[in-house]
């Protein structure tokens, strides 16, 4: 994957993006969220991101740490500050805003 600098107000070049997607089981909503996320990351954070999918049905104790209520929830662990985005990530614009990849209007 060759880095292409096509991001409007992109992240720092070598910044590592650590993302966690919390789901509860392999629901349609969860699968959609994962697909949406991967698409956005490929487009805006190629080679810089790491996605960890956590199934709360398998690891319920992990919900506490990131204060997860809603599923799916995407948590941006790095870079700081922590951001949370809930929903199936179908609204790309909102996801970009939520991840600070686009300035809030």
């Amino acid at each position: 994957m060759s880095p292409k600098k096509t991001i409007q107000k992109g992240p720092e070049a070598n910044e590592r993006w650590d993302l966690r997607l919390y789901v509860a089981g392999q629901t349609a909503r969860a699968l959609a969220a994962f697909a949406n996320l991967q698409k956005i990351c490929e487009e805006h954070l190629p080679g810089q991101y790491h996605i960890e999918v956590i199934d709360l049905l398998k690891h319920p104790q992990l919900a506490k740490g990131d204060q997860i209520l809603a599923v799916p929830t995407l948590v941006r662990k790095l870079p700081e500050p922590v951001r949370k985005i809930i929903g199936n990530l179908s609204d790309t614009e909102k996801v970009l805003v939520g991840l600070d990849l686009r300035p809030r209007s």
Binding site: L69, V71, R83, I86, G87, K94, V95
Partner: peptide, 28 residues
């Protein structure tokens, strides 16, 4: 005991979701 903290400013809503996370925590 579990403390459920929600900070409106930290949360961005994008599409459909439910509160299964809460259920999972409570069940746990």
């Amino acid at each position: 005991m579990d403390y459920v903290r929600i900070e409106r400013s930290e949360i961005q809503e994008t599409g459909e979701y439910d509160l299964e996370g809460l259920f999972v925590r409570l069940a746990a």
